[in-house]
Design a protein around this nucleic acid. Structure first.
Length: 271
DNA sequence: AAAGCACCCTGTACGC
DNA sequence: TGCGTACAGGGTGCTT
């Protein structure tokens, strides 16, 4: 599932390959994928727009145009691929954009949860997101202050994009393992040392995952804009490892459901 | 404020 | 072999 490291990797690839390109057409094959404007208006609004840069906010890919912004959320299964227009159109391509150099930006999404937005300002979509955990100016003090106002379970909190932007199920579980904190711990129960451990763990796990170009769990999983898989799966400690030995102590990894989402943790290491 | 759940979707795993 | 069904997952919206 694309989370912050995967979206960051996609955005970096798109920034390289799309900068300076102009959109010359768009085809919508599954209208619900286009959240706004109305699919019929997308064409007239995006043709002629030029890409200035591609970045990321939370789990959104943010394409800065000479006028307006194209935002894409990959949700569960979305892929953004840049290919020559002559390449056969794969199944599950719900929207594709023609570029002025004979290539296409294709939005491929088996689950159809992903969404595309064309807006004047990115904040129209991203205003509710919490801070970026990897920003230089996101400090331990900031994190402690955010935690102080919360009382829910750590796992649910880390998954809440309004609390912190970019963590999903994989990196929330991995961060809690790295911090040696149980996913059901109350956010208001942490000692100063535990808060520091969690802050460090989130930044360390996300940073390493970005360096590894994200996590690709199987051959249908995440790939970047050039179709390349990530490598962080080799460093996964608990996610998806139910029943397997904890890499630190050998205790079987447990899986429980929190807030309707699976949570993986070591019952001995995480307290 | 937080928890629980249905919803959106489809491929896959599983039971019979 | 083939069918039906449960499940996974991020985010939103609704109810408790």
């Amino acid at each position: 599932m694309p989370e912050l490291p995967e979206v960051e990797t996609v955005a970096r690839g798109l920034d390289q390959s799309l900068e300076g390109r102009t959109f010359t057409g768009v085809t919508v094959r599954w209208p619900r994928t286009v959240a706004r404007p109305e699919p019929a208006q997308l064409e007239q609004q995006i043709i002629g727009r030029r890409v200035q840069s591609v970045g990321r906010r939370g789990k959104y890919v943010v394409v800065e145009l000479d006028q307006g912004y194209l935002l894409i959320h990959l949700k569960m299964s979305g892929r953004l691929l840049v290919v020559a227009a002559g390449e056969p159109l794969e199944g599950h391509v719900h929207v594709f954009f023609d570029l002025d150099d004979g290539r296409q930006l294709r939005f491929h999404d088996v689950r159809k949860f992903g969404r595309v937005y064309l807006v004047d300002e990115p904040e129209q979509i991203t205003a509710g997101l919490g801070p970026e955990p990897l920003d230089d100016d996101f400090t331990l003090d900031d994190f402690s202050r955010l935690l102080a106002r919360r009382s829910g379970r750590l796992k649910s909190l880390l998954m809440n994009q309004q609390f912190l932007a970019g963590l999903g199920n994989i990196y929330a579980d991995e961060s809690l393992f790295a911090a040696r904190l149980h996913p059901l711990r109350g956010a208001d129960s942490l000692t100063p040392d535990e808060k520091a451990r969690l802050y460090d763990a989130i930044r360390s796990v996300l940073g390493q995952a970005v360096d590894s170009r994200g996590t690709t769990l199987d051959d249908r999983g995440y790939v970047d804009a050039s179709g390349r898989a990530g490598a962080f799966q080799a460093q996964i400690a608990v996610y998806g490892r139910r029943g397997q030995a904890c890499l630190v102590c050998g205790t079987p990894v447990e899986r429980i459901v929190i807030g309707g989402r699976s949570s993986h943790f070591c019952p001995r290491c995480q307290t």
